[in-house]
Design a protein around this nucleic acid. Sequence first.
DNA 1: ATCTGTGAAGCCGTTCACAGCG
DNA 2: CGCTGTGAACGGCTTCACAGAT
Lengths: 226, 226
Amino acid sequence: MARLPVYLRALHALQERGVATVSSEELAAAAGVNSAKLRKDLSHLGSYGTRGVGYEVEYLVYQISRELGLTQDWVVAIIGVGNLGRALAGYGGFASRGFRVAALLDADEAIVGQEIAGMTVEHIDRLEDVIAERGVSIAVIATPASAAQSVCDRVVAAGVTSVLNFAPVVLSVPEGVDVRKVDLSIELQILAFHEQRKAGGPVEYEPAGDGDRPSDQAEYVEAVEL
Amino acid sequence: MARLPVYLRALHALQERGVATVSSEELAAAAGVNSAKLRKDLSHLGSYGTRGVGYEVEYLVYQISRELGLTQDWVVAIIGVGNLGRALAGYGGFASRGFRVAALLDADEAIVGQEIAGMTVEHIDRLEDVIAERGVSIAVIATPASAAQSVCDRVVAAGVTSVLNFAPVVLSVPEGVDVRKVDLSIELQILAFHEQRKAGGPVEYEPAGDGDRPSDQAEYVEAVEL
DNA sequence: ATCTGTGAAGCCGTTCACAGCG
DNA sequence: CGCTGTGAACGGCTTCACAGAT
């Protein structure tokens, strides 16, 4: 359920505004989805709504948080402390959602030892030790493409089964390991593709009317290198 | 066709290794997809393969590049020069794929005027002028969540119809405008969700065997703030 | 004989529409 | 009467399997 985090964010916003109850229609609008879809998604977690009324915001926040595993803390290691790694290290959205960055690792001697976002960058040689000692369960790979697969192999060998990959390569991992990827350059390429079509470009194989509705925000992604 | 950029990357890698021809099977493996899917995707661009042989790498690279609109240059503006904006400005994967970052804009007087990745950060007040003068066609929003919607409204009003949003909000835009979003915190939440399940967590509503196959890299995304 | 291109079947997520609860 | 929860219809994407080109 990749949409639950989006609902959760919308619910948090409502909570801050002091809203106690929402209808599927309202919440769906805030999350940018169709109301039937939202109801079906929520019904998978159980019947947390009240017919004729809607959903109680606070209760729903708790249920979704629990479903997503956000009621516990997750220990994250960031590997590769280039521009992107630095940006991730300083990202405030982690702690607030139960993600604790416990290590920054890099292979570059010039970077190792630097203080970033209140943490000292450690040498990649310590990777296995750090994962074991601090109980890292999610590895964020922000290395250059060339290093990504070997870093991935090492974190997997060290027992990590969740990887967020920012390097522009397809990582191969054994069954049971989850890899998600974020690739900026692919995002831009997809935008360029649509942009080209709009600009009265040559119509290639579809008649017309692709239909980009307002809330139809695409959800594919790709990665930044370094 | 969100997979074309992935194919293209795999093809570039093959090209660098001097490979002249690939079968659908090989290319599919490199891109992390099924070979039937790959053939169907490529067949939509025309018949660029040779039966009994495979696809000519160089020719296919050209055809896909053309389809994606990468044979022309795209002018990009990055709005919000926090940690993430800086990382994006310094990202090398842009220029090589026909994306030219033509402007960095921010509202913070302390940041305006700084030199980053060879460019001077300009004040957000100049947004409309910059878009018009330099022919910006893609806007990258890397501002805090609170500023994202108003920045988005301004770039859309200025004629931009492609937006890449890193702020953790659902942007609402008029029909005809393309928004893609990258949200890191949502990525981590999805990983946490799966991780929780693996760890012998309470089985909630599915029997078992979710089946994370190796090449099944998820493709949803979400954004970093600032 | 090999590997592409593609009709046909299968599968899964989305949407519709309404029964039924509050 | 309003709004949730959900069976049923729909549509698009994926996979299969093979005809046919080289």
